[in-house]
Write a protein that binds this DNA or RNA. Structure first.
Lengths: 244, 244
DNA sequence: ACCTGAACACCGTTCAAGT
DNA sequence: ACCTGAACACCGTTCAAGT
């Protein structure tokens, strides 16, 4: 198949072709060893992390790479395909944890690592939430999570549900992390504070500092994660621990 | 204050001014009783739900309302402000549950209602995740959640953390709900399936039907929610149940 | 064979001219 | 006083012309 019309982004992703083996361009930039699917995706990811996903334009990205805007279309079929490759690059940064020790610790390490990668790449969430991405880089993580859960004694159904919950929580947290929100908006937010009428929102006003505290750093992430892990431990115990 | 430069969208939101009391335009459309901040936000939300957030343009929205594009700027300072009002409209649809019965049932009802509203408004997630929104319509829900948790016996810190976890999970689920993804992409996804090499992703291949099952309907949402509620129940029990 | 400027059909928003 | 077309500076992508 010579890059025909039917070779969708998902085909490429599924084959792990994020490194542009299908093409060997010989542009000026390429001779400097700078241009490839991989390199373009990396610069796009960095740009998205630095200035926001919306700030990534084909023209701007090309300028950053020292090529014409249209050159990018020699490597990617569309901007969507390019951004998927950027998302995949971030996903590939998740390193799988050691398979030693109790399941709970392994799972916490894996999900914690996903969280850390998402912190390092604030655009990772938006890149993934706009369009679901199925790629080897992404599925590696799912596979690792399922492995831990299944070997801990969860059956297929419970393992799949558990992973879905952990995944959704981890990405959801990244998506509502005010630290990945433009500084301007955060300032406006904080300055205004939560000046709500206490008679209407008594519990919010009462727990204001605590609410704000859950908006900073990674601690709140791990508190929520431990809640889910507690739920999973209880479920495993209730379903009979004969497998341990 | 006569709509001065310092009257930001957050000020308006905090005062609950989503109904445009500050202005009484008398355009043709207005005489037909069709134009107001509220009406514009509603049509924008419906359009976003129907065709996707990206499909909402000032020109297109104005056309739908039977006015010129620039007329919208008489009601909203910018497209961002308009979209925030649309998000707020969706948030206002969350109806607070009865305060009777056990805390767990109340919390499940509240979070389930948030989930249902997010299903009804697929754009709700994207509208909220791009920019955090602080408005009375949004904080009502936070207040209700905190009320249930505090009265159940959780202290301020634990209640705030618990709410953050539930909120992030609920919105995260909505954001990764393939049912809110364009049909075209879903088809491509399903048709291709997960044709990964079994030796590389054994656990994924093994639990493929179960994984796909977690991508459909609301059941997986409630499974994950119950996991979190189990964790909360265990936490409450461990911290001493003297308050019950 | 590969790269890319010009052009097309958009976009949010400003501005000045309409009524 | 209120509404809005034209215009500006963008955008992703097509196309045809460059080398």
């Amino acid at each position: 198949m010579a890059r025909g019309e039917t070779d969708s982004r998902i085909d490429r992703m599924a084959r792990g072709e994020t490194r542009g083996q299908t093409r060997a361009p010989t542009t000026r930039a390429r001779e400097r060893g700078e241009l490839s699917r991989e390199e373009i995706a990396e610069v796009a990811l960095a740009l998205a992390d630095r200035e926001g996903v919306d700030a990534v334009t084909m023209r701007g990205l090309a300028r950053e790479l020292g090529v014409g805007a249209m050159t990018l279309y020699g490597y990617f079929r569309s901007k969507d395909e390019l951004m998927d490759a950027a998302a995949d690059r971030a996903a590939e940064e998740v390193s799988l944890p050691s398979r030693e020790g109790p399941w709970r610790r392994q799972l916490r390490a894996l999900v914690g690592e996903m969280h850390r990668v998402l912190q390092r790449h604030p655009s990772g969430f938006q890149l993934r939430s706009q369009r679901p991405l199925i790629s080897r880089g992404v599925m590696r993580t799912t596979n690792a999570g399922l492995a831990i859960l299944r070997e801990a004694g969860f059956d297929k159904v419970r393992a799949a549900r558990a992973w879905r919950c952990l995944f959704v929580y981890t990405f959801g947290f990244a998506g509502f992390n005010p630290e990945s929100v433009p500084e301007e908006t955060r300032q406006e937010w904080k300055a205004r504070g939560l000046t709500f009428p206490p008679d209407e929102l008594p519990w919010v006003v009462d727990a204001l500092p605590e609410l704000i505290e859950t908006m900073t750093g990674s601690d709140p992430f791990f508190h929520g994660l431990d809640l889910i892990l507690d739920g999973l431990a209880a479920q495993l115990e209730a379903s009979g621990a004969e497998e341990i």
